[in-house]
Design a protein around this nucleic acid. Structure first.
Lengths: 107, 107
DNA sequence: AAAACATATGAATGAACCATCATATGAACA
DNA sequence: TGTTCATATGATGGTTCATTCATATGTTTT
């Protein structure tokens, strides 16, 4: 069996739009339009990201009339976020409770 | 207090070279040269990545003569990897135990 | 079946990122 | 103190990625 490419999995969490999607879905399932409105992004962009995330099983889709309702894979995603939060606020000495410093490039 | 930018934190895990660094360091601390040899990458590239990772407190550095010994922040990184593994092998229906499919672009 | 609505898809542009090269810094030792 | 070793840094070019636009698909409603 081959080594899976974890970096690809993690890439799902490393983009602002996708993070907004995740955080929005953390409160419950949403349609694409609802998502689009909540995060203030373009519908087609949201769809593109959802496709990627669905492919990696981070979100799940259900048809409902003409809508598609997306929901989080909570088993994976919520603990993931919790760990990130713990690190950023607890372990990252540079962040010190306000991780904008981690948002800046470093080079 | 501001929302930290989790996506930046996760970006540390979303690159192949950085993943190789992490996996190499999982077995114990290494100098830059040792890392460079183990993962077959260029010294300056490894250094660049280490800088980023150190900034986000994912690795720690100690001087030792002219060498610098890097070690993992195990508290954060190892559970993170474990969760990724669990997802990829356990929850990701597309991956089915061999996640090269997640490595391919999806569009 | 046509119209309206909801979402997905493909192509294209612009931005961000990464690897590389050249070189700088700093430490040890002759 | 000059040389070698170990690592860091800055700039650059190439590639990948994200967003946008235009359009297609599919579903419901009339």
């Amino acid at each position: 069996m081959n080594e899976p490419s974890y970096e690809q999995f993690f890439a799902n969490f490393s983009n602002y739009t996708r993070m907004k999607i995740i955080i929005a879905l953390a409160d419950g399932p949403l349609s694409v339009n609802e998502l689009t409105e909540q995060i203030g992004d373009e519908q087609s962009n949201v769809s593109h990201h959802l496709k990627q995330m669905a492919h990696c099983s981070l979100v799940d889709v259900k048809r409902e009339g003409k809508k598609r309702i997306y929901s989080l894979n909570e088993k994976t995603v919520k603990p993931m976020l919790a760990m990130a939060q713990e690190h950023v606020f607890g372990s990252c000495t540079n962040c010190a409770g306000d991780c904008r410093s981690c948002a800046e490039g470093v080079r």
